[in-house]
Design a protein around this nucleic acid. Structure first.
Lengths: 154, 154
DNA sequence: CTCATATGGTCAGTGCACTGAGTATTTACG
DNA sequence: CGTAAATACTCAGTGCACTGACCATATGAG
């Protein structure tokens, strides 16, 4: 009987939170476009013509995952990908008109969805909630390469 | 220029938090056993002999995902699965000795890892952090079937 | 007892997410 | 100029996560 209480494990709670979010997203926002796909569209609305690597940096996705998400958005006709003339390694990404329209429509719905998701918290708690998650995520993120010092044995 | 600030989107932050957690987990806890696998082991330490469905309920996983995770744990020899004699639909799950040992070892490491993950927060903030995530996740969870009322058109 | 319904599990399909290896292009050093 | 290092991307492999369709066993109402 050495079982642990998972409700004190942030990783476990993060997973459950994401599932809750996924549930609301598919019912209230879209069944076709996913949340990561929206994040990519959003990054390109803010900064058209980014390459894949930079998009990944903006939305927090690694190169392989960006490639997959981008492929799906292109297949749906929301995105164009053209080789950079000045640097042949890069692909420059740009929304199609359809992509811009889709992003606009989803923006409204995501706002409504976030309201529902955060409904159990009052205004102060919401601000704290977002800030604490951000701080924890940022801290661990900035710890990517620098410190393989705490690596486990075996 | 109708781009949105993703730092105000709980779903996006939840995903980033989970990635941060995943990063720390693989370096500080285990490269073989994943966090969901540990959750299943932990549920069976607390309540040996559960069936798959109930395990899923305890750790927040759907039946298909539980089946996959269980299959991997069996392949690693950490778990046994036997048909319930009293109800031929069920499979009863039980840890092997090796499974118990593995769980015990990981428990220590997960505690250390959680310390590092929560390092950017002070003690009060940690308590608030866990409680707020739990409340939001629970609320959305309890909204599974009852309310397809807010479903989006199209 | 019989048949409709619940329930536990499996399977196929889709999508996110990471790692590690490999390819192509660019850049920087000698 | 020429080659080594860095960079952008692709590809294969593994694992989580959900849905919807399907199968088998149980159970409850008639």
């Amino acid at each position: 009987m050495a079982a642990v209480d998972l409700a004190t494990h942030p990783g476990h709670l993060a997973r459950r939170l994401q599932q809750a979010h996924h549930l609301l997203w598919t019912t209230m926002v879209s069944e076709e476009i996913t949340s990561p796909q929206f994040a990519v569209l959003n990054a390109l609305v803010a900064e058209p013509g980014l390459d894949q690597r930079t998009v990944g940096e903006r939305v927090g996705l690694d190169r392989s995952t960006v490639a997959e998400v981008v492929a799906r958005l292109i297949r749906r006709g929301l995105l164009d990908k053209v080789r950079d003339a000045r640097d042949g390694r890069r692909f420059l990404l740009r929304l199609t008109d359809e992509g811009v329209r889709t992003h606009r429509g989803l923006t409204v719905r995501t706002a409504r969805m976030n309201q529902v998701l955060l409904a159990p918290l009052d205004a102060d708690e919401r601000a704290v909630f977002l800030e604490l998650i951000r701080r924890v995520a940022d801290a661990a993120e900035s710890l990517r390469d620098p410190l393989p010092a705490l690596r486990a044995p075996h």
